[in-house]
């Protein structure tokens, strides 16, 4: 009887439901703490109030507009970043000459906190969309670039030799062997780049203002509308979760061969 109970608990703990349960429990605990006034309700609004505010701003179309602007910018800049980073990363991984020429530059720029380039970007590009896109793209280029470069460098030399033996040109080896072989590692870099694009999209909006979810949150904070502020933060959490899930689904579909072969090797 007792063993059965333990097994049942264990089977529940093995599902992803536990993560959802944890969030709900934590929310309820905060709700109680606030309603008992153990924490100051002025600074920490009740989760139920936050949800009400979230529902209201969603229904009025105010929040969806800001979310749309933030995501739109993040997506455009992220796409630009990928279009630059993947080919350039492959080039750096493929060509010794290009690597020697550009790697010091890449290594100098890469660890720079991306928010540090915002003042420089404002100086040259003003505070319009081009500056915002530049900053987001600049920040998300590096993880993708470095992943592509390392992945191409790490392509099995036997595969490259096979390409040469089959009389493929250097270009064909890059496109038909190195690129697909490097794709799983590039995808990992792209996932990190996506998170960075979202973060920078919000950061720029907080610093420069105007519109977007980042602006929405900061504006709510400055006008002491904390429920609104938290509603915006909850929205970020949901967006992050959805973006990662979408990417994972895409990754599993496109790189099915990789996931299955890895599973088999285990």
């Amino acid at each position: 009887m007792r063993r059965l109970f333990v097994m049942k608990i264990r089977s529940i703990l093995n599902t992803r439901l536990t993560g959802v349960a944890l969030i709900i429990t934590a929310t309820c605990v905060i709700e109680l703490l606030v309603s008992w006034q153990w924490v100051d309700p002025v600074y920490v609004p009740r989760p139920s109030t936050v949800l009400e505010s979230l529902a209201a701003t969603m229904a009025s179309g105010e929040l969806p507009t800001h979310i749309g602007i933030t995501l739109g910018r993040a997506f455009v800049a992220y796409s630009i970043a990928i279009l630059i980073a993947v080919p350039f990363g492959i080039l750096l991984g493929e060509s010794r000459i290009a690597f020697n020429l550009f790697d010091p530059l890449v290594q100098a720029f890469r660890p720079m906190p991306s928010s540090a380039i915002i003042p420089v970007a404002i100086l040259f590009l003003g505070i319009g969309d081009s500056m915002r896109l530049f900053v987001i793209a600049f920040a998300s280029v590096w993880p993708v670039l470095v992943a592509a470069m390392d992945a191409v460098k790490r392509v099995d030399p036997i595969l490259v030799e096979t390409g040469r033996m089959l009389n493929l040109s250097r270009r064909q080896i890059a496109l038909r062997i190195a690129l697909p072989a490097a794709a799983p590692a590039i995808a990992t870099g792209m996932r990190i780049g996506l998170a960075i694009a979202l973060i920078l999209s919000l950061t720029v909006e907080m610093i420069v203002g105007g519109d977007g979810l980042g602006f929405f949150i900061l504006d709510a904070e400055r006008s002491f509308q904390f429920a609104r502020m938290f509603a915006g933060i909850v929205a970020i959490g949901v967006i992050g979760f959805l973006a990662n899930s979408a990417f994972t689904a895409f990754d599993r579909k496109v790189l099915r061969w990789h996931h299955q072969s890895v599973l088999r090797d285990k």
Binding site: I158, T162, M165, L166, I177
Partner: peptide, 14 residues
């Protein structure tokens, strides 16, 4: 044509 010692690694897994 060459058949490599590491023939498994010479096939494209995708």
């Amino acid at each position: 044509t060459v058949v490599f010692q590491e023939y498994g690694r010479s096939l494209l897994p995708w």
